Amino acid sequence: MTVNETTVADTKPIIELHNVGKLYGNVRALGEVDLAVKPGQVTCVLGDNGAGKSTLIKIISGLHQHTQGEYRVDGEPVRFSTPREALDMGIATVYQDLAVVPLMPVWRNFFLGSELTRGLWPLRRLDIEKMKKIVDEELCAMGIELDDLEQPIGTLSGGQRQSVAIARAVYFGARVLILDEPTAALGVKQSGVVLKYIAAARDKGLGVIFITHNPHHAYMVGDHFAVLRLGAMELSADRRQVSLEELTNHMAGGGELAALKHELAQVRGVDVEELPEEADLSL
């Protein structure tokens, strides 16, 4: 165990979920989930479509309330009514669509809804120079280099837009950063850009929740892995406890892989000898 891993292990979690579940009428979308998010750690939440990832995000971010279990922030039980309440406690969510205005400049999107002003009413006006200076400093601190802060944010690549959104959340006091499938619609190079800034946010001491369906992306930056399956926790393990192959098998569903291998064996011309066997679910 490295010095950094020892420090994180001894750190108290910012967010703790104990047996948290969510019912929509008689439908159980999430059941008995345990999760802890510590500062300086990337917690990767993986799962296929319908696994419960979106429901989990909505509970942590304050969009929905849990119907069972306990949700704690800094050790105190909470039940958020709105995302604003979660944000006030330092829990920020960056959704896949980023909630940006494509035709507005980068600096304006950075401060969207929280613009700085100067002067007294009725002569109050936007403090454009100060906002640009802050944006430039914050992006540079994250290692993000843009040629022109006046360019519309819609002209940036997907990876650059995600990076600006991460830097914005850090500036406005996020302690926990929830990233909803930030690499889902990106190519290999742009995904690498986003993963780089996820690691940078972790190194700044933030607790990062990285929601993804890509185990390879998760394993590049993750410190702890939680795999959801049909609303239940399939796996919860630190990086040293699970390999990429094991994580991939859990993500795919070991039992389903074995069944699929059996079915493919009946198809002429398909070699199933190299396909993985059922995953070891004892972790």
Rank of each mutant, 00 (worst) to 15 (best):
M1P: 09
T2M: 12
T6R: 15
T6H: 14
V8K: 04
T11N: 02
K12M: 12
P13E: 12
I15S: 02
E16D: 01
N19F: 01
G25Q: 07
N26C: 05
A29E: 03
G31W: 14
G40S: 03
Q41E: 15
V45F: 08
L46H: 08
L46E: 01
G47V: 05
A51T: 07
S61K: 04
G62T: 07
G62L: 04
L63C: 12
Q65L: 03
G69A: 04
Y71C: 08
V73D: 00
E76Q: 14
F80W: 13
F80L: 09
S81G: 15
T82P: 01
L87E: 15
L87Y: 12
L87K: 12
D88P: 08
I91Y: 11
A92N: 12
T93V: 13
T93C: 13
Y95I: 07
Y95K: 09
Q96N: 09
L98W: 11
L98S: 06
M104H: 11
G113A: 04
E115K: 00
E129R: 12
E129W: 02
K132S: 10
I134E: 03
V135F: 02
D147E: 15
T155Q: 14
S157R: 06
V164W: 09
V170R: 14
V170W: 00
Y171N: 05
L177T: 02
S191I: 05
S191K: 03
R202D: 06
G205S: 06
L206K: 13
L206T: 05
G207K: 03
G207M: 04
V208Y: 07
I209K: 05
I211A: 06
N214D: 14
P215D: 02
G222Q: 06
H224R: 15
H224W: 05
F225M: 06
F225K: 01
V227Q: 05
R229P: 08
G231T: 09
A232F: 03
E234F: 05
S236L: 14
R239M: 00
L244R: 09
E245M: 05
E245S: 10
E246N: 10
A252Q: 11
G253I: 00
G253F: 04
G253Y: 00
E256C: 13
L257I: 15
L260I: 10
E263R: 14
L264A: 00
A265C: 07
A265M: 00
V267T: 07
V270A: 09
D271V: 01
E274S: 13
L275C: 03
E278P: 07
D280E: 11
L281M: 15
L281P: 10
S282E: 10
